[in-house]
Design a protein around this nucleic acid. Structure first.
Length: 206
DNA sequence: TTCCTGGTATAGTTACATCA
DNA sequence: GTGATGTAACTATACCAGGA
């Protein structure tokens, strides 16, 4: 176990900041091309240890434990952790940087999935409301037809009895039931206990 | 106040290890 | 053998604090 840590440590130390590893820096370019790292494989300097450097489970556990308690890494904690783990402080810092990036990605994924859930629910609700609107519109059309029929019936009655309380003006109001938002109160006045056959639908609005 | 330096952050990239 | 994936290590850049 410690052998593994020591071995990793040696490998990692041998890899730290090798001079002349980077090539082709072109700082004058506007596009600021990134440096490329040379491949390490088979390099003389790394020797047999020029391998990558996977942290042991024990090291990762301790790092995770520390990350769980605090995502930021102060110098003191970094140095302490590094010596506890037999790692270079730089490695600990890098591990925390990468871990923060992974944590952020995961959080973003979770947020996305939560937002998607809300969005899907909203879409379903929108569909439901739209179909309800359609249904209500159909009811409205039927109601308007009823009114039309009634109007015609009242016309017939009033021509027979001129003393009817219904004025013609009232019955010949322009289209009074349009889209939603129409105020029904003033549109059609029926005195209490005045039953008009075929007007049961009025209960919908009273 | 300004400049320099060192440390740390994020975002993106590269190279290597591992696994299906 | 190969492509996908995970991850250590890197670069570029920005910001901040402390000292001269």
């Amino acid at each position: 176990m410690n052998n593994q840590v020591d071995e990793d440590h040696l490998v990692l130390i041998s890899q730290l900041y090798p001079e002349g590893v980077y090539t082709q820096m072109v700082p004058q370019q506007e596009s600021k091309p990134r440096r490329r790292r040379k491949k390490n494989r088979g390099g003389e300097s790394g020797g047999a240890g020029a391998k990558k450097r996977k942290l042991s489970a024990e090291q990762v556990n301790l790092l995770e434990l520390n990350f769980g308690s605090e995502h930021k890494l102060e110098s003191e904690r970094k140095d302490r952790l590094a010596s506890e783990l037999g790692l270079d402080p730089r490695q600990v810092a890098v591990w925390f940087q990468n871990r923060r990036a992974r944590w952020k990605n995961k959080k973003l994924e979770e947020e996305y999935s939560s937002l998607k859930k809300s969005h899907d629910a909203a879409v379903v609700e929108k569909c439901r409301l739209e179909s309800e609107v359609l249904k209500l519109k159909e009811q409205l059309i039927e109601a308007e037809k009823d009114i039309q029929r009634l109007s015609e019936r009242v016309d017939g009655l009033s021509s027979n009895s001129p003393s009817s309380s219904m004025s013609m003006e009232a019955m010949q109001e322009p289209p009074f039931l349009g889209e939603f938002g129409v105020e029904y109160d003033d549109v059609f006045y029926v005195q209490e206990n005045n039953y008009i056959p075929g007007m049961e639908w009025m209960n919908l609005y009273m």
